[in-house]
């Protein structure tokens, strides 16, 4: 007997790599326009202040022209440009509008809302401290997050699998879990030996709750027929838990991991700004204390990049692990 049925094609068809002139030129044109506008707006400012900002535009124009020339040789590059250039253009336009509102028209109160050039300058001048803060935040976040995930997976599997554990654990989870982790800060600062330890514990707590909740519900909702099949194949409890219930719960577990990640960002920033004397959260409140709002915005930009990179990595991991899912849900 041979397989006659056809495989459903699953590899998505690559979009044709057409790159319109309009799209290709949008980036250098927008950058040149923003550059010119900035020169006009800032003609009364000290020129050194915005040196790196202007340099950035020159670089953007130069690189985008180089890429436009190089596009002939690489369809991958063409596709990437066709895909990304509209977004880049919008970003340049946004920065340009920000420049006009702050530096040009001075609509927003000045010390609190510096223009992009000033923010870029703070970013560059304070890069070592910012890098150091990012590093501290990363260490604290990863420590707390992995602790919370491990604890959450263990308690979630136990609650989801065993009826007695569910009976005693669920009420506790329902009462303690919804308290925001940050509400424990006063207690945690007293109990823990150091601010770092207490912050890591708080992040872990914030992560633990959603991971436990979603893991438990995923495990206890494992389709009974999968467990029945496994039992008729001779499976013992180990196989049933680790090779049936947990894989079946993975889509749910990942939702818990994402929710936990969001909660951990929040807890990290709050914990850093009240207790720990390092990290991006601390940097923001420290800069605010000195009324250096350029630094505040610089740190916010770093935070955005930092958090979204971690989020993207988790998405990548999920797509890897859940390849078996039919048309993975996009969210």
């Amino acid at each position: 007997m041979e397989a006659q049925e056809e495989l459903v094609p699953v590899t998505p068809v690559e979009p044709p790599s057409v790159l319109r002139w309009r799209t290709m030129l949008a980036v250098p044109v927008a950058a040149a326009f923003a550059f010119a506008l900035h020169l006009f707006i800032a003609k009364n400012e000290p020129p050194l202040e915005a040196h790196s900002y202007k340099l950035l535009y020159v670089e953007v124009i130069g690189v985008s022209i180089l890429l436009a020339l190089g596009r002939r040789f690489s369809p991958g590059l063409r596709r990437w440009m066709a895909n990304m250039w509209p977004v880049f253009t919008a970003a340049i336009v946004f920065i340009c509008i920000w420049d006009v509102i702050t530096l040009g028209l001075r609509i927003l109160p000045l010390p609190y809302f510096p223009g992009p050039a000033a923010v870029l300058r703070s970013l560059i001048n304070d890069r070592f401290l910012l890098l150091d803060s990012t590093w501290h935040s990363l260490a604290l976040l990863l420590g707390g997050y992995s602790l919370g995930v491990i604890a959450g997976l263990i308690s979630g599997v136990c609650i989801g699998w065993s009826a007695p554990v569910r009976y005693w654990g669920m009420p506790l989870l329902k009462v303690v879990g919804p308290i925001p982790a940050t509400a424990w800060i006063p207690l945690a600062m007293v109990l823990a030996p150091s601010a770092i330890v207490s912050s890591a514990a708080l992040i872990a707590l914030a992560v633990w709750f959603p991971v436990t909740m979603l893991t438990a519900s995923g495990i206890s909702n494992t389709r009974a027929s999968y467990l029945d099949v496994a039992r008729t194949l001779g499976a013992g409890p180990g196989y049933l838990i680790f090779r049936v219930a947990i894989p079946a719960a993975l889509p749910n577990i990942f939702i818990g991991l994402f929710m936990g990640l969001g909660a951990s960002f929040l807890t990290l920033v709050v914990a850093e700004s009240v207790g720990v004397k390092s990290g991006l959260g601390w940097y923001v409140s420290w800069a605010q204390g000195w009324a250096e709002y350029g630094k505040v915005f610089a740190a916010l930009i770093i935070m955005a990049a930092f958090f979204s990179t971690i989020m993207t990595l988790l998405f990548k991991l999920r797509d890897r692990v859940l390849v078996w899912q039919k048309g993975v849900i996009k969210w």
């Binding site: 027929s225 029945d228 099949v229 039992r231 008729t232 894989p247 993975l250 039919k326």
Partner: peptide, 20 residues
């Protein structure tokens, strides 16, 4: 008394494990 690999059962639905 309990399921056993000596008694195989093919279910009405294939019930393949989708993650394998």
């Amino acid at each position: 008394t309990q399921p056993n690999a000596e008694r195989g059962l093919v279910f009405q639905d294939p019930n393949l494990f989708p993650w394998l």
